[in-house]
């Protein structure tokens, strides 16, 4: 498992390198629904590695939906969060939560499965939360409610902070950009995306381990 993660991290780094070197025109042509594979590995068990942070992805993430509300590809968002976790010397595991689309619950289930007790909840529209296993689902360590304002560097910072909590640190929260005017602008699209996500919810379904692979 550990080796596998490191291997992937290596691949990710290589891919990032290649991406950075690639000409702009070709990146624009990438089909982001195809550059990440999320393979089902069976029911998720509670982890034992105290350095493990679980990223709980909501039912449609990278499956029937591929972009956040800000049109960030899910593949890039997931990559950034994983990179942030690994930068802090921790290990990322991805688990798909199918029984709810509520970001608080997704994050809380992820935290309960994580060896460290720290989980990240990630909705397809990009709303993100950092949870601790002993918190109630409606409370959190950090919440990023306005997905239209969350950028790729911020997703990386969210991964980093989750890892810091896992190590027992008390990091400064990732700065939340608050701009109340974006709420009405994006509210209709947010509802559209949330209903798409909720369509994939299966009542009482078990959480599934996910093997992630990035292809470019």
């Amino acid at each position: 498992m550990q080796i596998n993660e490191q291997l992937i991290a290596g691949i990710v780094a290589q891919v990032m390198q290649e991406l950075a070197n690639a000409p702009a025109a070709s990146t624009a042509a990438v089909d982001y629904s195809k550059d990440m594979t999320l393979a089902d590995k069976g029911p998720a068990q509670r982890g034992t590695n105290p350095k493990e942070v679980v990223i709980g992805i909501a039912p449609a993430f990278g499956k029937t939906m591929n972009y956040t509300i800000k049109k960030l590809p899910h593949s890039q968002v997931l990559r950034e969060i994983i990179a942030g976790i690994e930068e802090e010397g921790c290990v990322a595991r991805v688990v798909r939560v199918v029984r709810t689309s509520d970001v608080g619950f997704v994050g809380n289930y992820a935290a309960k499965l994580a060896g460290s007790g720290i989980g990240i909840g990630l909705q397809s529209k990009g709303t993100t939360v950092i949870e601790h296993k002993d918190m109630t689902p409606l409370t959190n360590l950090e919440l990023f409610p306005l997905a239209p304002l969350v950028t790729l560097p911020l997703y990386r910072a969210i991964g980093r902070n989750a890892a810091r909590y896992a190590k027992g640190d008390n990091p400064d929260p990732v700065p939340v950009i608050l701009d109340q005017t974006v709420l009405p602008i994006y509210q209709p699209t947010a509802v559209l995306l949330h209903n798409r996500e909720t369509s994939e919810v299966v009542f009482n379904a078990e959480h599934r381990d996910v093997e992630f692979k990035f292809s470019n």
Binding site: I185, Y186, P188, T189, V191, L192, N195, S199
Partner: peptide, 13 residues
């Protein structure tokens, strides 16, 4: 600076 949606009756939108 607001978004407009077509009805989505299946979802109650």
């Amino acid at each position: 600076r607001h978004s407009y949606l077509k009805d989505w009756p299946e979802k109650g939108l």
